[in-house]
Amino acid sequence: MSESRALFIAITGGIGSGKSTVSNIIREHGYSVISADEVARHVMENDENVKTRLIVEYGNATFLPNGTLNTAHLSSLVFSKENKEKIKKLNSIVHPATLDAIIDMAEKLDEQGEKCIFAEIALLYESGLEDAFDYIIAVAAPEEIRIQRVIQRNPEMTKQQIQLRIKEQADQGWVKNQADFVIENDAGLDKLEDSIHFILGLIPHLPVVYSTDDENLTNDDTMEDTQ
Protein backbone atom coordinates (compact mmCIF):
# COMPACT_ATOMS: atom_id res chain seq x y z
CA MET A 1 0.00 0.00 0.00
CA SER A 2 1.20 3.50 -0.71
CA GLU A 3 2.02 6.26 1.83
CA SER A 4 -1.43 7.72 1.38
CA ARG A 5 -2.96 4.35 1.81
CA ALA A 6 -6.32 3.56 3.34
CA LEU A 7 -6.70 3.20 7.08
CA PHE A 8 -6.65 -0.45 8.11
CA ILE A 9 -8.83 -1.12 11.11
CA ALA A 10 -9.39 -4.34 13.00
CA ILE A 11 -12.65 -5.31 14.63
CA THR A 12 -12.06 -7.85 17.33
CA GLY A 13 -13.83 -9.38 20.28
CA GLY A 14 -14.55 -12.69 21.90
CA ILE A 15 -17.10 -15.27 20.89
CA GLY A 16 -20.66 -13.93 21.19
CA SER A 17 -19.55 -10.32 21.63
CA GLY A 18 -21.34 -9.29 18.43
CA LYS A 19 -18.41 -8.59 16.09
CA SER A 20 -20.40 -9.72 13.07
CA THR A 21 -23.32 -7.45 13.92
CA VAL A 22 -20.89 -4.57 14.22
CA SER A 23 -19.29 -5.54 10.90
CA ASN A 24 -22.66 -5.70 9.19
CA ILE A 25 -23.61 -2.24 10.43
CA ILE A 26 -20.26 -0.90 9.23
CA ARG A 27 -20.93 -2.50 5.82
CA GLU A 28 -24.31 -0.77 5.75
CA HIS A 29 -22.41 2.50 6.07
CA GLY A 30 -20.65 1.65 2.82
CA TYR A 31 -17.32 0.40 4.15
CA SER A 32 -15.65 -2.87 3.19
CA VAL A 33 -15.23 -5.33 6.02
CA ILE A 34 -13.07 -8.35 5.38
CA SER A 35 -14.21 -11.29 7.47
CA ALA A 36 -11.21 -13.33 8.54
CA ASP A 37 -13.57 -16.24 9.32
CA GLU A 38 -14.87 -16.26 5.76
CA VAL A 39 -11.42 -15.84 4.27
CA ALA A 40 -10.09 -18.70 6.42
CA ARG A 41 -12.93 -20.96 5.37
CA HIS A 42 -12.37 -20.08 1.73
CA VAL A 43 -8.67 -20.82 2.11
CA MET A 44 -9.34 -24.16 3.83
CA GLU A 45 -11.74 -25.24 1.09
CA ASN A 46 -9.84 -23.90 -1.92
CA ASP A 47 -6.12 -23.70 -1.22
CA GLU A 48 -4.81 -27.10 -2.29
CA ASN A 49 -1.73 -26.89 -0.09
CA VAL A 50 -3.80 -26.04 2.98
CA LYS A 51 -6.36 -28.73 2.17
CA THR A 52 -3.70 -31.40 1.86
CA ARG A 53 -2.11 -30.45 5.17
CA LEU A 54 -5.50 -30.47 6.91
CA ILE A 55 -6.29 -33.94 5.58
CA VAL A 56 -2.88 -35.22 6.66
CA GLU A 57 -3.37 -33.75 10.13
CA TYR A 58 -7.09 -34.44 10.74
CA GLY A 59 -8.05 -37.18 8.28
CA ASN A 60 -10.31 -37.41 5.23
CA ALA A 61 -13.35 -36.57 7.35
CA THR A 62 -12.12 -32.97 7.48
CA PHE A 63 -14.05 -32.39 4.27
CA LEU A 64 -17.55 -33.51 3.44
CA PRO A 65 -18.14 -35.43 0.19
CA ASN A 66 -19.18 -32.18 -1.53
CA GLY A 67 -15.80 -30.65 -0.69
CA THR A 68 -16.97 -28.28 2.01
CA LEU A 69 -15.33 -28.10 5.39
CA ASN A 70 -16.64 -30.51 8.03
CA THR A 71 -16.57 -28.03 10.89
CA ALA A 72 -18.17 -30.45 13.34
CA HIS A 73 -15.37 -32.94 12.77
CA LEU A 74 -12.66 -30.30 13.01
CA SER A 75 -14.16 -28.73 16.14
CA SER A 76 -14.45 -32.08 17.87
CA LEU A 77 -10.76 -32.69 17.29
CA VAL A 78 -9.44 -29.21 17.96
CA PHE A 79 -11.74 -27.58 20.49
CA SER A 80 -11.61 -30.14 23.26
CA LYS A 81 -9.79 -30.20 26.58
CA GLU A 82 -6.04 -29.72 26.55
CA ASN A 83 -6.40 -28.21 23.11
CA LYS A 84 -3.97 -25.31 23.04
CA GLU A 85 -1.41 -27.18 20.98
CA LYS A 86 -4.10 -28.49 18.64
CA ILE A 87 -5.43 -25.00 18.01
CA LYS A 88 -1.93 -23.74 17.43
CA LYS A 89 -1.31 -26.53 14.94
CA LEU A 90 -4.53 -25.83 13.03
CA ASN A 91 -3.81 -22.15 12.88
CA SER A 92 -0.23 -22.71 11.75
CA ILE A 93 -1.69 -24.51 8.74
CA VAL A 94 -4.48 -22.07 7.97
CA HIS A 95 -3.16 -18.76 9.14
CA PRO A 96 -0.36 -17.80 6.72
CA ALA A 97 -2.47 -18.35 3.61
CA THR A 98 -5.44 -16.61 5.23
CA LEU A 99 -3.34 -13.62 6.11
CA ASP A 100 -1.91 -13.41 2.60
CA ALA A 101 -5.46 -13.49 1.23
CA ILE A 102 -6.56 -10.71 3.60
CA ILE A 103 -3.61 -8.54 2.59
CA ASP A 104 -4.37 -9.11 -1.10
CA MET A 105 -7.99 -8.11 -0.55
CA ALA A 106 -7.01 -5.00 1.44
CA GLU A 107 -4.52 -3.92 -1.23
CA LYS A 108 -7.11 -4.31 -3.96
CA LEU A 109 -9.61 -2.25 -1.98
CA ASP A 110 -6.94 0.38 -1.36
CA GLU A 111 -6.17 0.55 -5.08
CA GLN A 112 -9.88 0.99 -5.74
CA GLY A 113 -9.69 4.14 -3.65
CA GLU A 114 -11.26 2.98 -0.41
CA LYS A 115 -10.25 5.27 2.45
CA CYS A 116 -10.97 2.89 5.27
CA ILE A 117 -10.81 -0.90 5.25
CA PHE A 118 -12.01 -3.00 8.15
CA ALA A 119 -11.11 -6.58 9.01
CA GLU A 120 -13.07 -8.65 11.49
CA ILE A 121 -10.59 -10.85 13.30
CA ALA A 122 -11.61 -12.83 16.36
CA LEU A 123 -8.19 -13.72 17.70
CA LEU A 124 -6.30 -10.57 16.84
CA TYR A 125 -4.21 -10.29 19.98
CA GLU A 126 -3.77 -14.03 20.38
CA SER A 127 -2.18 -13.91 16.91
CA GLY A 128 0.06 -10.96 17.69
CA LEU A 129 -1.35 -9.09 14.69
CA GLU A 130 -2.44 -5.94 16.45
CA ASP A 131 0.48 -3.87 15.13
CA ALA A 132 -0.61 -4.54 11.56
CA PHE A 133 -3.56 -2.19 12.02
CA ASP A 134 -3.85 1.54 12.37
CA TYR A 135 -6.64 1.27 14.89
CA ILE A 136 -8.42 -1.48 16.72
CA ILE A 137 -12.06 -1.64 17.71
CA ALA A 138 -12.93 -4.10 20.47
CA VAL A 139 -16.49 -5.33 20.71
CA ALA A 140 -17.44 -6.40 24.22
CA ALA A 141 -20.42 -7.74 26.13
CA PRO A 142 -21.01 -9.36 29.53
CA GLU A 143 -20.27 -13.09 29.59
CA GLU A 144 -23.89 -14.12 30.23
CA ILE A 145 -25.07 -12.20 27.17
CA ARG A 146 -22.29 -13.71 25.06
CA ILE A 147 -23.25 -17.22 26.15
CA GLN A 148 -26.93 -16.58 25.34
CA ARG A 149 -26.03 -15.28 21.89
CA VAL A 150 -23.86 -18.28 21.07
CA ILE A 151 -26.51 -20.75 22.28
CA GLN A 152 -29.09 -18.93 20.16
CA ARG A 153 -27.09 -19.38 16.97
CA ASN A 154 -25.50 -22.74 17.91
CA PRO A 155 -28.12 -24.61 19.98
CA GLU A 156 -25.97 -27.73 19.95
CA MET A 157 -23.31 -26.04 22.07
CA THR A 158 -23.54 -26.34 25.84
CA LYS A 159 -22.91 -23.52 28.27
CA GLN A 160 -19.78 -25.30 29.48
CA GLN A 161 -18.41 -25.57 25.94
CA ILE A 162 -18.95 -21.88 25.36
CA GLN A 163 -17.35 -20.98 28.68
CA LEU A 164 -14.37 -23.12 27.72
CA ARG A 165 -14.13 -21.29 24.37
CA ILE A 166 -14.31 -17.91 26.15
CA LYS A 167 -11.58 -19.04 28.52
CA GLU A 168 -9.38 -20.00 25.58
CA GLN A 169 -9.65 -16.48 24.17
CA ALA A 170 -7.90 -13.36 25.42
CA ASP A 171 -9.49 -11.86 28.51
CA GLN A 172 -12.12 -9.33 27.48
CA GLY A 173 -11.06 -6.76 30.07
CA TRP A 174 -7.49 -6.96 28.84
CA VAL A 175 -8.58 -6.61 25.20
CA LYS A 176 -10.61 -3.50 26.07
CA ASN A 177 -7.50 -1.97 27.62
CA GLN A 178 -5.47 -2.64 24.49
CA ALA A 179 -7.93 -1.49 21.83
CA ASP A 180 -8.29 2.11 20.67
CA PHE A 181 -12.07 2.01 20.60
CA VAL A 182 -14.45 -0.08 22.63
CA ILE A 183 -18.01 -0.85 21.64
CA GLU A 184 -20.10 -2.19 24.50
CA ASN A 185 -22.69 -4.35 22.81
CA ASP A 186 -25.01 -4.90 25.73
CA ALA A 187 -27.92 -2.51 25.32
CA GLY A 188 -29.74 -3.15 22.08
CA LEU A 189 -29.32 -2.25 18.46
CA ASP A 190 -30.03 1.49 18.76
CA LYS A 191 -27.21 2.07 21.22
CA LEU A 192 -24.93 -0.17 19.18
CA GLU A 193 -25.65 1.84 16.04
CA ASP A 194 -25.01 5.09 17.93
CA SER A 195 -21.63 3.79 19.12
CA ILE A 196 -20.63 2.65 15.64
CA HIS A 197 -21.82 5.87 14.08
CA PHE A 198 -19.69 7.89 16.47
CA ILE A 199 -16.56 5.86 15.75
CA LEU A 200 -17.17 5.91 12.00
CA GLY A 201 -17.46 9.67 12.24
CA LEU A 202 -14.06 9.94 13.90
CA ILE A 203 -12.09 7.41 11.93
CA PRO A 204 -11.79 9.25 8.60
CA HIS A 205 -10.15 12.13 10.47
CA LEU A 206 -7.57 9.95 12.18
CA PRO A 207 -4.08 9.66 10.74
CA VAL A 208 -2.59 6.51 9.28
CA VAL A 209 -0.41 5.00 11.98
CA TYR A 210 1.13 1.89 10.53
CA SER A 211 2.87 1.48 7.20
CA THR A 212 1.86 -2.00 6.18
CA ASP A 213 4.80 -4.28 5.99
CA ASP A 214 4.08 -7.73 4.66
CA GLU A 215 6.95 -9.21 6.61
CA ASN A 216 5.37 -8.14 9.84
CA LEU A 217 2.06 -9.53 8.78
CA THR A 218 3.23 -12.91 7.54
CA ASN A 219 4.15 -14.72 10.65
CA ASP A 220 3.09 -18.18 11.62
CA ASP A 221 1.34 -17.36 14.83
CA THR A 222 -2.27 -18.15 15.30
CA MET A 223 -4.68 -15.66 13.84
CA GLU A 224 -8.04 -17.05 13.16
CA ASP A 225 -10.69 -18.68 15.20
CA THR A 226 -11.01 -21.43 12.63
CA GLN A 227 -14.02 -23.10 14.12
Binding site: K176, N177, Q178, A179, D180, F181, V182, I183, E184, D194, S195, F198, I199
Partner: peptide, 12 residues
Protein backbone atom coordinates in the same frame (compact mmCIF):
# COMPACT_ATOMS: atom_id res chain seq x y z
CA UNK B 1 -19.98 10.49 28.43
CA UNK B 2 -21.04 7.71 26.05
CA UNK B 3 -18.42 8.69 23.50
CA UNK B 4 -15.66 8.89 26.12
CA UNK B 5 -16.52 5.35 27.25
CA UNK B 6 -15.67 4.17 23.72
CA UNK B 7 -12.17 5.63 23.62
CA UNK B 8 -9.15 4.12 25.30
CA UNK B 9 -7.22 6.92 27.03
CA UNK B 10 -4.16 4.68 27.08
CA UNK B 11 -3.88 4.50 23.29
CA UNK B 12 -5.71 7.68 22.22
Amino acid sequence: TQAIAQINPGTL
